[in-house]
Design a protein around this nucleic acid. Structure first.
Length: 218
DNA sequence: GAGATGATGCCCT
DNA sequence: GGGCATCATCTCG
């Protein structure tokens, strides 16, 4: 309990550092991920040590209506967080080496989420560089789901963290920048089922997205 | 228990 | 644009 209080205070400190950053309400996440995802563009992923990056690319995953979603076949030990309360972080491990970060959406039991695919580093960039020695340029620090998770130190330990309150040491906040009016919409990446769902969005012109132009094949 | 398979990233060309 | 690294999780038996 005391640890939770410390974490929330730490987030408050981080929120106070750049003025006027605000939390998102829980209701923001209690919608279909295809609505939440584009609204997450230009929001800010924030850690309690001050690391911050603007979200520039996302994908929606829609539970039982989406064969590509981890939650498609129902709840398992791995994806249980995805079936919990909206606004929490669902973290999974894949390809034997990469972590993926999702914001849980909808209502309890739905298994809906938005994969955070790429972000533009804003604060704490030195720390991100230390965690991502392979990145040659700053645009490589978080230009992919695995890279983003690595730059933010996101592992299984953060599965279930509350992105609304910051409990767990990570949150998504707003600096008042609205989502883009004209986000780039296209097919999702790195999946083999339901590849034609146009559920990937990114900020037009951003140099920090995972793939620009042509869609990656699989 | 074994076998298959990824919501990928890196490096090289 | 392609090869490869590398293992948790799921599924089936």
């Amino acid at each position: 309990m005391r640890a939770i209080v410390r974490q929330e205070q730490a987030l408050d400190t981080a929120l106070a550092t750049p003025p006027h950053w605000t939390r998102l309400p829980r209701s923001f996440y209690r919608r279909h991920p295809a609505e939440v995802a584009p609204d997450l563009l230009n929001k800010i992923l924030l850690r309690d040590d001050g690391r911050a990056a603007r979200i520039v690319e996302v994908e929606a995953y829609a539970g039982s209506e989406d064969p590509a979603a981890h939650s498609f076949r129902g709840m398992t030990a791995r994806n249980a967080t995805m079936f919990g309360e909206a606004g929490h972080l669902y973290v999974y491990f894949t390809y034997g080496m990469h972590w993926g970060s999702n914001a849980v959406c909808g209502e309890v039991g739905d298994g809906l989420g938005v994969l955070l695919r790429a972000a533009e580093p804003m604060l704490g960039v030195d720390q991100m560089r230390r965690l991502r020695p392979a990145a040659r340029r700053d645009r490589d620090l978080a230009s992919g789901p695995g890279k983003l998770s690595q730059a933010f130190g996101i592992t299984r330990k953060l599965d279930g963290a509350d992105l609304v309150t910051g409990t767990g040491g990570i949150a998504i906040v707003s600096d008042g920048t609205p989502p883009p009016d004209d986000p780039v919409v296209g097919p999702r990446i790195g999946i083999s089922r339901a590849v034609d769902y146009p559920w990937r969005w990114h900020v037009p012109g951003s140099l920090h997205v995972s793939v620009r132009g042509a869609v990656r094949k699989r």
